[in-house]
C-alpha cells in the first residue's frame, strides 16, 4: 500500500519537478542551459549521503535486534547508495565538461562522492564473499557502521585538502535566486520520494528472495 502511494506520488512529483527544472527555473546568467542538471545532481549527491547513514542505522539496528529485516534494509540502502552516487557522478561529469572543459576534476565534492561510491562497492564485495547468511548480515552491519562513522571524517579531510589545492571554482556561496531554490526543493522532494519508492520495492524483493531461499532449503532437506 505504502509502496503504491509512493509510486504514484513519485510519478506526479517527477513530472512536476521536470517542469520546475527545465521550464520554470530561470536561465543562469553565465552557464546557460547546462546548469539545469544541478536539479538532479545536487539531490542525488545528498541522497547518497542519506543512504550511507541509513546503511549505518540499519547496521546498528541489526546488531541490537538480530532481525534479518534490518539487514534487508541495509541492502536496500546500500544499493540506493550506489545508484545515487553513480547518478551524481555522471551528472556531475556531464555538467563539468561544458563548464570546466574537463569530464573530471579532483574537486572536493567529486572526490568525496567517488569515495562514498567506493565504500558502497566495498560493502557489496564484502557481502559477496561471505557465504553464511547470518554472518554476512552481521559483518556487513559492522562494516556499514564503520563506514557511516567515516563519512564526516572524509568530508572534513577532503574539504581541508581542497582548500589547499587550486581548483575550478563553483563554491555555491552567495544568494541563490528564489525561483531556482524552489525548483531545487521540488526536484529534491521528487527524487527523495522516488528513492523511498525504490527502497520499498527493493525490500519487497528481498523478502521474496528470502522466501525462495527458504523453500530451496526445504526442498534440499527432503531430497
Amino acid at each position: 500500500m505504502t509502496s503504491r502511494v509512493l509510486g504514484i506520488a513519485s510519478l506526479v512529483l517527477m513530472v512536476f519537478a521536470l517542469y520546475m527544472a527545465l521550464i520554470y527555473a530561470p536561465q543562469e546568467a553565465q552557464q546557460g542551459t547546462p546548469y539545469r542538471i544541478i536539479y538532479f545532481h545536487v539531490p542525488m549527491g545528498i541522497l547518497s549521503f542519506v543512504s550511507a547513514y541509513l546503511l549505518g542505522f540499519a547496521g546498528i539496528m541489526f546488531l541490537i535486534k538480530r532481525d534479518l529485516k534490518w539487514d534487508r534494509l541495509a541492502i536496500g540502502a546500500a544499493e540506493l547508495g550506489v545508484l545515487c552516487t553513480a547518478c551524481s557522478l555522471i551528472t556531475g561529469s556531464i555538467w563539468a565538461k561544458p563548464i570546466w572543459g574537463v569530464w573530471w576534476a579532483w574537486d572536493a565534492r567529486i572526490t568525496l562522492q567517488l569515495l562514498l561510491g567506493l565504500f558502497f562497492i566495498a560493502y557489496f564485495m564484502l557481502r559477496a564473499y561471505l557465504p553464511d547468511r547470518e554472518k554476512r548480515a552481521k559483518l556487513a552491519a559492522v562494516f556499514g557502521v564503520l563506514g557511516m562513522i567515516d563519512v564526516p571524517f572524509n568530508y572534513y579531510s577532503i574539504e581541508w585538502w581542497a582548500t589547499q589545492h587550486p581548483q575550478p571554482v563553483l563554491r555555491g556561496g552567495g544568494s541563490i535566486d528564489p525561483d531556482m531554490r524552489l525548483a531545487l526543493y521540488v526536484s529534491a522532494l521528487a527524487l527523495t520520494v522516488t528513492c523511498a519508492y525504490l527502497l520499498t520495492r527493493r525490500l519487497a524483493i528481498a523478502r521474496v528472495e528470502e522466501e525462495v531461499e527458504y523453500l530451496e532449503h526445504l526442498v534440499h532437506a527432503h531430497e
Binding site: L118, L126, N154
Partner: peptide
C-alpha cells in the same frame, strides 16, 4: 577490526585493502 572481518571472507587477504583503503582515506590524506 577490518582484518578480522576480512578473515571471515573467502578472499581473506585480498579483501583487506578493499575494505580498508576507502575507510582510511582521511588518515592517509591527513
Amino acid at each position: 577490526i577490518l582484518s578480522t572481518i576480512s578473515a571471515n571472507t573467502r578472499m581473506k587477504e585480498v579483501m583487506l585493502p578493499i575494505l580498508l583503503i576507502p575507510l582510511t582515506l582521511p588518515v592517509i590524506l591527513a
